[in-house]
């Protein structure tokens, strides 16, 4: 069968799509349309003016974060006994892809217990200048001793100040970050 673009069977077989083109620019009609479009543009910008600014003036106002927002870490204590949850197992350090957690464990002395387990973290440091806030430490922790908090204002003038020690991570953070309400 020879290919004939004018044959009836060929024309029936293809689906003709009509391309919608706008009117040609220029001329009186073009000028009229341009004027109309200008008015439409003016209407659009005026609507934006009426809607009012969307700006959140950051240092004074803050965007609320979601409950699962991964901000600066927190270490936790048992609320009843006051003992640290961290047992110095170093699983968080092992899970950390950025290698920013350093844990040095020590044996608990009976009578002067620091943590609930056999051992405790004598040194617990997170280098926040390396942390990528992935939250793997939180997942790796078998005792929920470390969680990601909501703070994100951690800028500092010195890199050394970004190494957070155990005391800093245990301390109740200054609640500076608003949380989104339910359903927001």
């Amino acid at each position: 069968m020879s290919f004939d673009p004018k044959s009836a069977s060929y024309l029936d077989s293809i689906e003709v799509v009509e391309v919608q083109r706008g009117p040609k620019p220029g001329g009186v009609g073009g000028a009229y349309r341009a004027f109309g479009e200008t008015l439409r543009g003016l209407k659009t910008t005026m609507a934006r003016l009426i809607e009012g600014p969307m700006t959140i003036e950051y240092p004074e106002e803050k965007t609320p974060v979601y409950p699962r927002f991964r901000g600066r870490h927190k270490l936790h204590k048992f609320e009843d006994t006051g003992l640290e949850k961290c047992v110095g197992c170093s699983l968080c350090a092992a899970a950390c892809p950025a290698d920013c957690i350093r844990v040095v464990a020590a044996e608990n002395i009976p009578g002067d217990r620091v943590s609930a387990g056999e051992r405790y973290a004598a040194v617990y440091e997170i280098n926040l200048s390396r942390c990528i806030f992935c939250g793997y430490c939180e997942i790796a922790c078998p005792f929920d001793a470390i969680t990601m908090g909501h703070d994100y204002e951690m800028a500092d003038y010195d890199r050394r100040d970004l190494i957070f020690t155990k005391e800093m991570l245990l301390a109740e953070p200054v609640e500076r970050t608003p949380l989104k309400s339910e359903g927001e």
Partner: peptide, 10 residues
């Protein structure tokens, strides 16, 4: 200020 308002800014 007005240009800002036209663009959702202050």
């Amino acid at each position: 200020k007005l240009i800002g308002r036209f663009q959702h800014r202050y």
